[in-house]
Nucleic acid binder design. Structure first.
Length: 603
RNA sequence: GGAGCGGUAGUUCAGCCCGGUCAGAACGCCGGCCUGUCAAGCCGGAGGUCGCGGGUUCAAAUCCCGUCCGCUCCGCCA
């Protein structure tokens, strides 16, 4: 039954056959999507990339083709030569794009057979992630996955055209590069030619694009894979794609303007949505205080309310202790929720999973307050609290009192949890804005040193540089922290529906400033020389002022398509433990290979 | 490293609480019938190491312990 392609040549995609083809003879090729056998007449839904068309085979008119059609099974790969005709009246199928025509088979060629599929190409039944990834070639035949990848392709095209029109030059940077400290864990590649030495896969092309600026390519862009060996999430894969760009002789506004234009263009051309530019900007401080996160989802309320001042002199031991230790008291008011004890218990469990000791709450009811803690409050405190939270009967106020960062984390996540769980999020809204005025560095308790919030090449605000210098000079750690925390970065993040989709900064182009920053980050001169020497060297030879940004392409595509996981916009993604079920990577290698690489595995 | 949810037929699931006719459904698959269907229909059939290992018990899909895998989250991710 099987036949070679022979001189068969496809003349059209199945999905593109239309009324204008009626009467024509076409050669179609594709997969048997489904077969309906009526005894005497067989209908075959033939599927290719562009869609599905109905093939008709009648026994009395074409016994030869009928005999072959009879034997066809799902997902056999066939070619059909036939004549397009208008469907008989009353048999049209408006659900199909091609539903007003059908192809009367003249000849059927069977190019290949298929075993029964592990799961159907139809999407009615969901399939477990692992099965989908193991049989990704089947999964990608599905309408949604196929469309996702085509959508992604269009994002590439629009992006490339956009940057080209704006005068940017696309330049590739190496994947086999040098491991650098700071940031994520590197994937390492052993060097065969240099025993004991390793390349690292780039976490981003950051240093190379800066060097390209020094080289005079004043507008660079690239759609590029990046690699970070960290734990995975729904929006994080070990290898992911960035839209990366960098420009010389610019300030923040110039970079942000280009970034906005690209996003606005993608939304307009792909979704038909006009985003209002320039995008709104909020400060890091505002984001943290109101939402407890630097990437707030503002499509719903439930903002964090500051209460520390109200409880400054409280007798309530828990709050008192927290405030005395420099912590804060904040709350969210879940308006008109009438939460039951059971629901509050669930929320308590949730915050406990985040590391909270518990969840203090007040149920505001008609004429009374139900709460395990309100009895410890003074009359005045209760009054001010109700006023500040604008409490009404039906509301439930949920508290967090702890170190500032902890309160942000607890309430920020609780807010999001409630928003999702209780359907507060307006899914039809597109909330896009910038977060600006990030601190340059923050103190890392564990490592007992400052770490860069963005990366070590981010330019501090000019007016804050004296503070940096002073911080460098003082030996008083508390004073040092105080000074450093006041230093703001010339950095900006773009946030879309509560996800960070891009971030960038104006970079340090002066060696003296870079030296100060490295020193404060605890990177000694020798280390800086070893690890970033090539950049520092470049900065000596006429580095222009420059800045840029990188977008997370996978995230952008996923959000635009309304998907929760970037796995659904990546052809061959990894599972949460970094495994590819299709290829079974990572895997053991031959001892010989290890030997060549001068590597010995230690248990 | 930690928390939660899940793992039963090819697929998606029910059964698990309360151990004993609980090895079940739908779809798919195989065979047959059928000339206008399009999630075709009708009749018949095959198909399971209940993730894995151990324990408790007269008896375990069901209870307990451990472990592996998938997903979500915290930590981590400049």
């Amino acid at each position: 039954m099987l036949t070679d392609l022979g001189n068969f040549k496809r003349t059209k995609y199945c999905g593109e056959v239309s009324l204008s083809d009626v009467g024509k003879t076409l050669n179609l090729a594709g997969w048997v999507h489904r077969k309906r056998h009526h005894g005497g007449v067989i209908f075959i839904d033939l599927r290719d990339r562009e869609g599905i068309i109905q093939i008709v085979v009648e026994e009395k008119n074409n016994p030869e083709a009928y005999e072959i059609a009879d034997k066809l099974k799902s997902e056999y790969v066939i070619g059909v030569v036939g004549r397009v005709r208008k469907r008989p009246e009353g048999t049209e199928n408006p659900k199909l794009k091609t539903g007003y025509v059908e192809l009367v088979a003249d000849k059927i060629l069977v190019f290949n057979v298929s075993e029964p599929l592990p799961f159907p190409v139809e999407e009615e039944t969901p399939v477990s992630e692992e099965t989908k990834l193991k049989y990704r070639f089947i999964d990608l035949r599905r309408e949604n996955m196929k469309n996702n990848l085509i959508f992604r392709h269009r994002v590439y095209q629009i992006t490339r055209n956009f940057f080209t029109e704006e005068g940017f030059i696309e330049i590739e940077t190496p994947f086999l590069t040098k491991s650098t400290p700071e940031g994520a864990r590197d994937f390492l590649v052993p060097s065969r030619l240099h025993p004991g030495k390793f390349y690292a896969l780039p976490q981003s092309p950051q240093l190379f694009k800066q060097i390209l600026m020094v080289a005079g390519f004043d507008k660079y862009f690239q759609i590029v894979k990046c690699f970070r060996d960290e734990d995975l999430r729904a929006d994080r894969q070990p290898e992911f794609t960035q839209i990366d760009f960098e420009i010389s002789f610019v300030r923040e506004e110039d970079v942000m303007d280009i970034a906005e234009k690209l996003i606005a263009k993608l939304f307009k051309e792909l979704l038909g949505i006009e985003l209002k530019t320039p995008f709104e900007r909020i400060s890091y401080k505002e984001a943290m205080e109101k939402y407890g996160t630097d990437k707030p989802d503002r499509r719903f309320g439930l903002e964090l309310i500051e209460l520390t001042d109200i409880f400054e002199n409280t007798e309530f031991k828990v709050f008192k202790a927290v405030i005395k230790n420099g912590g804060v008291v904040k709350a969210i008011n879940f308006k008109n929720s009438n939460l039951s004890r059971k629901e509050i218990d669930e929320l308590t469990k949730y915050v406990q999973s985040l590391g909270a000791k518990g969840l203090a709450w007040i149920k505001v009811e008609e004429g009374k307050l139900t709460s395990p803690i309100v009895k410890f409050f003074s009359e005045e405190e209760t009054q001010k609290l109700l006023e500040r939270t604008q409490a009404q009967p039906g509301d439930v106020i949920l508290f967090s009192a702890d170190k500032r960062e902890t309160v942000y984390k607890i309430l920020g996540n609780l807010r999001l949890h409630i928003g999702k769980k209780y359907g507060l999020i307006d899914e039809n809204k597109w909330d896009i804005f910038w977060v600006v005025d990030f601190p340059l560095m923050e103190w890392d308790e564990e490592e007992e040193r400052f770490v860069a919030l963005h990366h070590p090449f981010t330019m501090p605000k000019e007016e804050d540089i004296p503070r940096l210098k002073e911080a460098l000079e003082t030996d008083d750690l508390d004073r040092k922290k105080e000074l450093v925390h006041l230093v703001r970065a010339r950095a900006y993040d773009m946030v879309l529906n509560g996800e960070e989709i891009g971030g960038g900064s104006i970079r340090i182009h002066r060696k003296d400033v870079q030296d100060i920053v490295f020193k404060l980050l605890g990177i000694e001169e020798k280390e800086a020389e070893e690890k970033f020497g090539f950049l520092l060297e470049a900065l000596k030879y006429g580095a222009p002022p420059h800045g840029g940004l990188a977008f997370g392409l996978d995230r952008i595509v996923a959000i635009m398509l309304g998907l929760d996981s970037i796995r659904d916009v990546i052809a061959f993604p990894k599972t949460q433990r970094g495994i590819c079920p299709l290829t079974n990577a990572p895997d053991y290698v031959e001892t010989k290979q290890l030997k060549e690489l001068h590597i010995k595995v230690v248990e």
